[in-house]
Design a protein around this nucleic acid. Structure first.
Lengths: 204, 204
DNA sequence: TGCTATAAAATTACGTTGTAAATTTATGTC
DNA sequence: GACATAAATTTACAACGTAATTTTATAGCA
């Protein structure tokens, strides 16, 4: 009987391939990276990746899913480290969101910028994207449970999400020139949102 | 002496090529369209486009520049049609912005979503992008000249821009699920901005 | 009117890509 | 130690962007 790849073998190779793909995507931009390059970095032939992923599209979906998971990790860690104050936690999450995007711009673009209509067909991608999205409304649910907020957590969560995403995308696509940048616009937008939805926390 | 292409000849062919490219980009997504396809639609050989554009990147830049020009046209037309009320003009411009993006999503993505680091090397692209951007702060300059606003037009203009762009990009990349959509988020964000920057126009 | 120089266009050709098909290699069981 | 067969490699192919080469068509001169 021949060697049969165990689930761990499969998972380990997939992980190593994603590590390489992630690095090459960040270095050269996702669309410029070839399967042959990734295979060469791993010291395998050009066709070996096809034993572990259906095609290049599946590799992209896997790397994007990892991005969403890391994003959710960063947000959850910020929430946990921020202590008991619900408002401080909300601010910490927003700060972690912006830091992730600006520290890992290529990862952020891969997650939120890439056109991949086939992505919904990859269960792991769908799971990771949903998890990442959930972390952005979770703290508003917390606030509501604590009686500090009485709006619609999903709606207001998306307002804040859009208020971060818009400035970040403008900056990442090179549409902002000094003195304007994403943090400056985010301050203006979130301040306006806070006055509307959390007036009691805003100094008059 | 052989036939020599006049400037009009050059401009006409470039225009026809951009028409075809624009349509194919919208139909199949920009990266899926090949030069051979565009040439076939025009009934010329695969190499003929290279007489009129340096390479594929230059064609993309030209199509993007046309998108910015059309965008600026749409915004300026909305401003002209909105009549004399400066506030009505501002709202009309915002509405035209959103309508353009949602009516021509592929054009909007090409303009604001595509990674094309070389774009700054194409003068026509730079001109069109700057014009499009200027139309988004022009009405705030008007408002300030009319004494109806005393903030920084560039900063506040970019706040509104980001408040439109964020929800639009979230929708165009499939991140929004009913009942949330770009217009709903834009209403929430612009309402918050208006309370902050134009309190006298907002009913308490 | 034809002949010619030459710009424009078409054809051919090449290196690279994603990946299908064919082949080789390596390993658990008898 | 030979075999069955999964895994890996090699080979092969169509399609891509585009460089190099060849063909075509035309404005001015004889």
């Amino acid at each position: 009987m021949p060697k049969i790849l165990t689930d761990e073998d499969l998972a380990r190779f997939r992980d190593r391939l994603c590590d390489v793909a992630e690095r090459l995507f960040a270095e050269h931009g996702a669309e410029a990276v070839t399967i042959r390059q990734m295979a060469a970095e791993l010291g395998v032939s050009a066709m070996t990746p096809y034993r572990y992923f259906k095609d290049k599209d599946a590799i992209l979906a896997a790397v994007r899913a990892r991005g969403f998971d890391r994003h959710a990790d960063a947000l959850e860690q910020a929430r946990n480290e921020a202590g008991g104050d619900a408002v401080a936690r909300a601010n910490a999450i927003g700060g972690a969101y912006v830091r992730f995007a600006l520290d890992h711009p290529e990862a952020y673009r891969l997650m939120f910028d890439v056109t991949q209509p086939t992505a919904e067909a990859y269960p792991d991608f769908v799971r990771a994207a949903a998890r990442s999205k959930a972390t952005m409304t979770a703290h508003l649910i917390d606030l509501k449970a604590a009686g500090l907020f009485d709006g619609d957590p999903d709606y207001v969560g998306h307002l804040y999400w859009a208020a971060l995403h818009g400035p970040i995308m403008l900056q990442l696509t090179g549409m902002l020139a000094p003195p304007l940048d994403a943090p400056a616009l985010i301050r203006g937008l979130t301040a306006a949102l806070a006055r509307r939805h959390f007036p009691e926390y805003v100094s008059a």
